[in-house]
């Protein structure tokens, strides 16, 4: 049995992957595309928070909000200026895929030029440790978990109880009818891309005081949340959450048991899960 700290670390990773995967699935269910540059929005989230806190001295919670809004707006611009123009049925899915893959390198290059390639570390925002006797947890990590729960509950409320949330679900279920009743699919696409990227940014921001910030920090979380989506069943929001949870713990526990080949083992496990359930755990779309 791995020590509690390993499970805690797994939970922290779960939180990132869940939030990332949720945003990706949301975008997928409306735009019908995988945003390959999702990890770079995560990276921008970390960088914005770093500069807001370290350079501008803005309190961390407000910096987090600023980062979510700024990166959300960037996501909306990307949708409006790039994705909307190439995400046309007659082109097929290849063009928009190539466009978002290109964005990975564009954003990483731009971030390297603007902010430098070296690691930046944000000091702990909430120092101190909660001692539970059997094990102890830093307040920073507790903050990550609480924040993730708040984000998920907020998303649940937005998607189920607000007019815009219902409109988003309507577009994902029957876009033609949505358009006929005045719900602009184009507008909803922009909004959802904004929400999805803001969620990635929040994940990146909340991690900034724990992990180093650099232009390439988005790659691993992106691959992991992609795996989470596939395990959970693509298109399912519940699947994204459960897949994220599973993957975070798996990753942390495997790395503890076998440090050298942890990724090999992880991916073998993922392949095994998919061999048993190719459609993922929540294969039928729940939306």
């Amino acid at each position: 049995m791995p020590p509690a700290a390993i499970w805690m670390d797994g939970l922290i990773q779960s939180c990132i992957y869940m939030t990332m995967a949720f945003g990706m699935v949301l975008v997928f269910s409306i735009l019908g595309i995988l945003n390959w540059a999702h990890g770079q929005f995560y990276m921008f989230g970390g960088i914005v928070v770093y500069y807001a806190v370290a350079a501008a001295g803005i309190p961390f919670p407000i910096s987090l909000l600023i980062s979510a809004v700024a990166v959300g707006v960037l996501g909306m611009l990307v949708e409006k200026l790039i994705i909307e123009r190439v995400n046309v049925p007659i082109y097929g899915p290849l063009y928009v895929g190539v466009a978002t893959i290109s964005l990975i390198f564009f954003f990483e290059g731009a971030a390297s030029m603007l902010f430098g390639m070296q690691d930046k570390g944000l000091s702990m925002v909430y120092p101190g440790v909660l001692d539970l006797g059997v094990f102890s947890v830093s307040y920073q990590k507790i903050g990550v978990v609480i924040f993730t729960v708040i984000v998920m509950v907020a998303m649940y409320i937005v998607l189920n109880l607000t007019k815009i949330g219902l409109a988003i679900r309507a577009v994902s279920q029957e876009p033609v009818a949505a358009n006929l009743y005045g719900i602009s699919v184009k507008r909803i696409s922009v909004i959802v891309m904004g929400i999805g990227c803001a969620m990635a940014a929040m994940a990146g921001s909340i991690m900034a005081p724990i992990y180093p910030v650099n232009p390439f920090m988005g790659r691993i979380p992106m691959i992991m949340s992609l795996l989470a989506i596939v395990i959970g069943g693509i298109g399912s929001l519940t699947g994204a959450i459960v897949g994220g949870l599973i993957l975070g713990f798996l990753n942390s526990v495997i790395a503890y048991k076998i440090s050298y080949f942890s990724e090999v083992v992880l991916f073998i496990l993922v392949i095994l899960i998919l061999l048993v359930r190719p459609q993922g755990l929540f294969g039928a779309s729940l939306k």
């Binding site: 007019k163 219902l166 309507a170 029957e174 033609v176 009818a177 006929l180 009743y181 719900i183 939306k287």
Partner: peptide
């Protein structure tokens, strides 16, 4: 100008009440 489309095209995973509410989206 509102269309009641062929094949109903209700939003299948929304409740009837939510369907009606969204009918009045505008």
């Amino acid at each position: 100008i509102i269309q009641v489309p062929e094949g109903r095209k209700l939003w299948p995973l929304l409740t009837v009440q939510e369907n009606l509410k969204l009918g009045a989206y505008l």
